[in-house]
Design a protein around this nucleic acid. Structure first.
Lengths: 202, 202
DNA sequence: AATTTAAGCAAACGTTCGTTAGCAAAAATG
DNA sequence: CATTTTTGCTAACGAACGTTTGCTTAAATT
């Protein structure tokens, strides 16, 4: 019988570590907790990982990558600002709901990283926020969004609200990620626009 | 010389515990960290507190009280829904910025409480959210807010965005709590209203 | 079938954790 | 001034932490 491909076990460990880190936090989760969840002894994990922090790093860094790489093409595309914002909200929530544990850990546990890695993550988080701001800026320049918006501030509000979805979203809940995205975008964009048409344009 | 009134030292401990819990999390902060921050030995804290969890509990429970008791009179008042929402946003941000550490701990560290205390906090958090929803509901009933709003969902968005301020707000930053409240309320209310006047009413 | 490699266990390492005990100094109280 | 109470120290407790070591079993390779 074919043996499990190398790294298969490792992925399982990363998955369960992500779940536990997101539920109890990095410091609230022990190596023995993670091992016990897949019926291993604590020390046995070290056949697959180098350290506990490496686990956190891989989870957080993959999430950072997922967020950045999904937003970049949208911002660089040739759509209207409103379309871009709608898409950005939808794909952000797609990442958040598809990689829910990683998103929670990315948002709440990056402080536990070593200074170097923490700085790396912060830089990418800043880059992501800058991309988002770019959309609002374009909207103002195009005359569709109000000129009196505090762009960095509103961007923070938007991203915080969207990231919060990672905490309460349940796949079996009544709302799909797409429905959540639509409700949020409808509300948010209406608040940004200069004039308020009966229907928010798409 | 008059000795420091009893409990003065205790308040200092609570303050620094709140700061450390908010910066490094409950599990990331040791009793010796807290003691060291006021130049005491770890064991010396136990002349003032019963346990580490008691510290967390007092911080979290006081924050819960502050939020609830500041919102209740607003919801029960005779103002218009728009006025109520503006006030609710402003006082929420007032609590968040005046008791910043406690607000962060309240939002992120309640999971570390014992099951009974965790349930208590969750109940009060739910009650608070329900009060907030009440404002949106009234607005829809009065015909000033759109009837197609998903009230629980939008309420979550609003509260998550507001709570996020506790994480990034700096007293010496360029924006006062009142300015943050105004920018948020302008944007949020514009997104809720059926029609979009040039100026948001007050 | 023999050999190499990977996976997991039990036990232990040194450290840190929350907490307690016993004692000393200082401050408040009578 | 004598006494009680508060505050803090040092030292230690047992438990849990992340990690390492040496051994065993099982799987893959030759």
């Amino acid at each position: 019988m074919a043996r499990r491909s190398q790294g298969d076990r490792r992925k399982t460990i990363l998955r369960v570590a992500g779940r536990l880190f997101s539920q109890r936090g990095y410091y609230g989760t022990s190596i023995r907790d993670i091992a016990g969840a897949i019926r291993l002894q604590g020390g046995s994990l070290y056949a697959h990982i180098a350290s506990k922090e490496e686990l956190l790093w891989e989870i957080v860094e993959e999430a950072a990558q997922a967020f950045l790489s999904s937003l970049e093409p949208i911002v660089r595309s040739e759509r209207s600002p409103v379309e871009k914002l709608r898409l950005a909200v939808a794909t952000h929530l797609q990442v958040v709901t598809e990689r829910q544990d990683a998103a929670v850990v990315f948002n709440h546990e990056w402080k536990a990283l070593s200074p170097k890695r923490r700085a790396d993550i912060l830089a990418r988080r800043d880059a992501y926020e800058a991309l988002f701001r770019e959309i609002l800026r374009e909207g103002i320049e195009a005359g569709v969004f109000r000129a009196d918006l505090n762009v960095p501030l509103i961007t923070r509000f938007i991203l915080t609200a969207l990231n919060g979805v990672a905490v309460w979203y349940r796949p079996k809940g009544p709302l799909s990620p797409e429905q959540i995205a639509e409700a949020f975008a409808d509300w948010a964009i209406r608040g940004l626009q200069i004039c308020n048409p009966a229907e928010v344009p798409r």
